[in-house]
């Protein structure tokens, strides 16, 4: 297993956001996390990237407990978290945003290589390099946010609702890129409200409800299961 959460709970102050989360992502796997608003999806990603610590339970990455490791150490170990709502640096240029994504790299040649890699996935960014990120369209900002996350070539990419607010055509484009990253053997944990679209490209999925993992299975099985569809997927 690349990463596993074992009965994790976590709190914001006194508010229990995660009650009992257990999930796993294997090397090269694309796993989707679905659940209603407030179910704890984003919080789960924060626990994995180390910016929140579990109150109880364990997070094990590459065979090691992550509890004592800083977010920065976890990034260095290959976990990159692309947060909800894009969060690009609006007053910095596209290029500067991508450079910040490579903050932990110092080899200029390597950074250039990674830039090329990002441009391969998102050619549009290349023509916008000197533009302030805040002036990009919503879709372009989403691409920049993902591209910024790819600068470190993560082993485990955490994507929090990358399709939010995108037109159907852009959704297809971003989904295709996620599929391509999957084919390149990057492990991806995808949080998505658009469950149908996400499940179609995923290997497996977990369903979260009020801070618990309630169902899981192969994505195709969940899609085919009428009860799961009715209860959790909403279509």
């Amino acid at each position: 297993m690349l990463i596993s959460l074992e009965h994790v709970s976590s709190k914001y102050g006194n508010v229990l956001a995660l009650r009992d989360i257990s999930l796993e992502v294997d090397e090269g796997e694309l796993v989707t996390l679905i659940g209603a608003n407030g179910a704890g999806k984003s919080t789960t990603l924060k626990v994995i990237s180390g910016i929140m610590k579990p109150a109880t339970g364990r997070v094990v990455y590459s065979g090691q407990d992550t509890v004592s490791r800083s977010p920065r150490q976890l990034i260095e170990a290959g976990i990159v978290h692309v947060p909800e709502g894009r969060q690009v640096f609006a007053h910095m240029t596209v290029l500067e945003n991508l450079e910040m994504g490579a903050f932990l790299l110092s080899d200029r040649r390597l950074i250039e290589e990674r830039l090329d890699l990002v441009f391969r996935h998102f050619p549009i960014l290349k023509s916008r390099l000197q533009q302030e990120a805040g002036t990009l369209s919503g879709g372009e900002q989403s691409m920049l946010a993902i591209g910024r996350g790819l600068m470190l070539r993560p082993k485990l990419l955490l994507l929090d609702e990358p399709l939010l607010g995108l037109s159907p055509r852009l959704c297809q484009e971003v989904l295709a890129i996620i599929e391509r990253l999957h084919e390149e053997k990057m492990a991806i944990l995808l949080v998505e409200q658009n469950a149908k679209a996400a499940l179609k490209i995923s290997d497996r999925a977990y369903v979260l409800e009020t801070g618990r993992t309630v169902t899981s299975g192969k994505a195709s099985n969940l899609l085919a299961d009428d009860e799961v569809r009715k209860a959790y997927l909403g279509f």
Partner: peptide
């Protein structure tokens, strides 16, 4: 400079900057 850019990044969005490994 890289350090100056990361300062601007933190000023704009400390949460996102932290996710890039910036202290």
């Amino acid at each position: 400079t890289k350090s100056g850019k990361s300062m601007r990044a933190v000023a704009e969005n400390a949460f996102a900057a932290q996710l890039m490994g910036i202290s």
